[in-house]
Design a protein around this nucleic acid. Sequence first.
DNA 1: TCTATCTAGTTCAACTTTCAAGAAAAGGTC
DNA 2: GACCTTTTCTTGAAAGTTGAACTAGATAGA
Lengths: 167, 167
Amino acid sequence: MTTASTSAPRWLTDEEQRVWRAYLHATTLLEDHFDRQLQRDAGMPHTYYGLLVQLSQAPRRRMRMTELARNAKITRSRLSHAIARLEKNGWVRREDCPSDKRGQNAVLTDDGLDMLRRSAPGHVEAVRQAMFDRLTDEQVKSLGEIMRTLATGLEPEGADADLPWLR
Amino acid sequence: MTTASTSAPRWLTDEEQRVWRAYLHATTLLEDHFDRQLQRDAGMPHTYYGLLVQLSQAPRRRMRMTELARNAKITRSRLSHAIARLEKNGWVRREDCPSDKRGQNAVLTDDGLDMLRRSAPGHVEAVRQAMFDRLTDEQVKSLGEIMRTLATGLEPEGADADLPWLR
DNA sequence: TCTATCTAGTTCAACTTTCAAGAAAAGGTC
DNA sequence: GACCTTTTCTTGAAAGTTGAACTAGATAGA
């Protein structure tokens, strides 16, 4: 028998509480900030914008649905709805996968690429202003390592992992 | 005339792109992770849980709506919906503010406090596992500084700021 | 006072996300 | 091949969020 469920909780120290709070505050504000920036300048939430970026960098501007979901760290259901919306905007279209008849490719259209080119400078500027202009080089480096560590921690190797794109 | 709108965009360096991507991945995964943990163990999304925590730490377990929205970094509209839901659960109730007839206080009920006590150990453990157990002391310290910097950057002193709780 | 403006909070409609369920094809195994 | 399981993706309903419009009360100025 394990005692985990009844042993005294390892509460956060004051320092840890402050860091945790700061993390929640910063990420909430940043998400709000970029969602608004992109809603205003590109007519879509940040998640959707990220999908177009992924597609623009993929070979032949297309990607399998599950692969795209994995890259974006979201569920396939969420992706289905998102692609449906982007398709309505004319920025993406679906295409049957030739090698697997269950599969779909999401393809970035020319209109989609245009819209990306138009909005990219403004978005990069926003990212700079909100993040990179405010941090020292060391902090940027440190942030990268920390975030990679945290992301890796939630994507275990084993097949038993509860990952969004496998749900 | 400013040249900002026509000057060449300051694109992100490879390093910056990697950091930005890592940030998005980690924050997306973490949000998903904690939302699921709390939905499972406490029956509410993480944002709602945070509201109960705030109330539990406030004097007399109550707080004005706008003040609560400011602390949580969310809009008043979002908060209204959230409190309505939590009220339906019996964990919060509303109370007229005596000094300002427009105002409302959100009050944490006894049931709300109980539910918080029951779920806190599990949540703290989840936060530890996903974040603090994976980082060195230096990284935790660094993360705190970085997040405070970023949050502050999005909450300018001036009265012209576009802050969620003022919208 | 009277009036214009501002602040606190809510509400509605449109949109996004989640969860559970389901259709269709692929991949074993006998 | 027939059967069972897994994988891929979609769908529909419920829950959550957003942005704009709105009510009511506070505030400030003429």
